[in-house]
Design a protein around this nucleic acid. Structure first.
Lengths: 244, 244
DNA sequence: CGTGTCATTGAGGGACTTCAAGAGTGGTGG
DNA sequence: CCACCACTCTTGAAGTCCCTCAATGACACG
């Protein structure tokens, strides 16, 4: 299995929020140390999710939000005729499951793209805690609004960008998020298949493959299957940013 | 100016929620009579908005949500390079402005497509009131989730549907919403320009025009500028529903 | 009556899809 | 160990759908 985390094993379930390498970008962001301890008390850390296993499914009751500690997850909706539409990819330190917040029912399915360690945060307890910690509550509003603005960016991408711009946008997005997590912004493994990329970006798998090959030939990126090295970040950004 | 409401003038600012023809589908839905009266007390009814005037703009502080009493409104984001992306059309009885709820800042701009009468509901007071009226609070969660699922449907449309399916989907959507408001589901005026339709659906204005003409020639719809009559609803739905 | 805006229609071209074949990879079992 | 299979990915050739460019028409407004 390809692995983007060579530093150490992050699947160990015994880590707590205070020690977690991701605390700076995850839910505990801007919380005081003893507040993190309180959050820590309600976080449940289950066994890792294997590739292809669902974290939650569309239609399920909303019971918790989830923080991704390692691995990668995709979220998707299934339209009436059974076709999948991927709505997002999630990387370590990111929070998912908020799609159920409004109705108490998840509208999306979340599925592991590779073996993933996940912190589960039961929402009832989180609600109580966030009453006491205004910073935590603010963080949740931020997250919800981030979800919405992400969707609107995706709409703009699908509505206005060509294939090159779409692919470049996705690569820049992953790069930026990796950088944010303290990882390399120029070298990483794509956690999703070409098919998932195409589904997400509104392209066929062949077009995804062709564009990636083209970027490789132009030496904007180096490419070996899922391993990506960005050689010319400025150029990639230029391609991506016919708008964000 | 073309007008889809020949029955009576709905721009009169003095109407209250209890008397409003739209109370069955608007915010007061499922509220008891005296609860509607409470809601009524905080609703502000300003002078009508003229075509092209903004109701709120991206970046503005979120102070209120709005109920559309007559007319039509579009919401849109402006991407970095200045291009507009329309994210929704709103018809009488529908609520807008929730895009600011998460961050207290609007992420979209809302603009009148034709002369529109609008009820403004200051959010601070609405918050207080919804504490006391659980049905009202539930209604708000519904509305937020509706916004999210609308965006996800738009994503699927942009990602998977061809031009005919996109146009048909929009027509069916407007038809359904008109029916819901007690108006004709088969005959109505489009409140937006071809350009706005194209922007929203990710198509050029020429393609919009061609598809509309084609549907006309196939006698699925009758068409005179913005006036639409749906002759074969089943056929239109069939075209639209390669998924919803 | 000219001017500007919006919409329609046609011709041509381009970007992406579809169809098809083949290469590379991982897993299973003889 | 390698043959076999399933699966993913790549690459090419052909086709199609939509866009671009352009001209014209319809209508409102000064």
């Amino acid at each position: 299995m390809s692995q983007s985390e060579p530093t150490s094993c992050h699947h160990a379930p015994q880590v707590n929020c205070g020690d977690c390498r991701l605390s700076a970008i995850c839910l505990p962001i801007s919380l005081a140390l003893d507040d993190i301890a309180k959050l820590d008390d309600i976080v449940q850390r289950g066994r890792p999710l294997q590739k292809g296993q669902p974290l939650y499914e569309a239609g399920e009751d909303f019971k918790a939000v989830y923080a991704l500690r390692s691995g990668a997850v995709k979220t998707s909706t299934i339209s009436r005729d059974g076709e999948e539409q991927i709505t997002g990819f999630y990387l370590p330190g990111e929070i998912l499951g908020l799609d159920g917040l409004a109705t108490n029912v998840h509208s999306n399915t979340a599925m592991a793209l590779e073996t993933s360690a996940i912190c589960e945060i039961p929402f009832s307890q989180l609600e109580d805690l966030s009453m006491k910690l205004p910073n935590l509550q603010r963080r949740f509003f931020q997250l919800m609004s981030k979800e919405i603005s992400h969707e609107q960016q995706l709409i703009t991408l699908l509505s206005k960008k060509n294939a090159d711009e779409r692919i470049a946008s996705l690569l820049v997005s992953i790069s930026t998020r990796n950088h944010h997590r303290g990882l390399s912004s120029t070298e990483f493994y794509l956690p999703m298949s070409r098919s998932d990329m195409g589904n997400y970006l509104g392209l066929t798998i062949e077009t995804v493959s062709r564009v990636m090959s083209r970027l490789h030939k132009q030496e904007v990126i180096a490419l070996d299957k899922k391993h990506v090295v960005i050689n010319q970040m400025d150029k990639l950004r230029a391609i991506a940013s016919t708008a964000d």
